[in-house]
Amino acid sequence: MSQKNNKLIDKKGLRLDGRKPDELRPIKIEVGILSNADGSAYIEQGKNKILAAIYGPKEVHPKHLALPDRMILRCRYHMAPFSVQERKSPAPSRREIELSKVIREALEPAIFLEYYPRTSIDVFVEVLQADGGTRCASITAAALALADAGIPMKDLVAACAAGKVDDTIVLDLMDTEDKIGKADVPVALMPNLNAITLLQMDGILSLEEFEKAVNLALEGCRKIYAMQKEALKAKYVNVKEVEE
């Protein structure tokens, strides 16, 4: 992250897209949009457009990967070639392989893996358009897809990044802020259990700034959690009145 540009926040304290430092980008979430998948969700966060789908639980193929005492979660995070300015090769990059791993590890704590031994759940995430913070938005969508697939879960997982641009700690960095800002701290949270399931950081932060960034990110996660619940319930909007 370079420090050339000190113009990411204007005199009024507003960001390039007019947001206040602690403000999220507009978020739109839809659940259950792919008919073939066992569960699915779609999220738009700023210009991010991301699809998540779940297949399973089902028997593991190849069979030798199956575990006798729990199910395995597999995750593939992938960016469409047209999702970024310059065409991205469709072959999985090292970044995508790492993100697939950390996204999986952010979702695993939320799932009762021991319920269905010898099975697997596949999580597929496709980034259709990227605008910074795709790993967090992917986790937010994938957690909803899991719930939509009827997978027993301890909690949903909501994710959001905080970071430092110019000299301010800000919430939910968009691409430009991520690229020329000073630090990025993606966080995933199981809000009801107050458990952090993803934490990464790059850039430079003092201990005090780090604490501030983590707390701001957690606040963002809680706001996103409320939206997740609304999106999940919206699918069952006609379930208000119940027949005896």
Binding site: V102, E105, E108, I196, L207
Partner: peptide, 28 residues
């Protein structure tokens, strides 16, 4: 941690979780 005392990279791994206060304790 850099020699100026700043944090410059973090990575969480594994299928468990951390409480927020554990993360701050770890940084110290």
């Amino acid at each position: 941690i850099s020699n100026d005392g700043n944090i410059c990279a973090i990575q969480k791994g594994g299928s468990g979780y951390f409480a927020p206060k554990q993360v701050l304790e770890a940084a110290k």
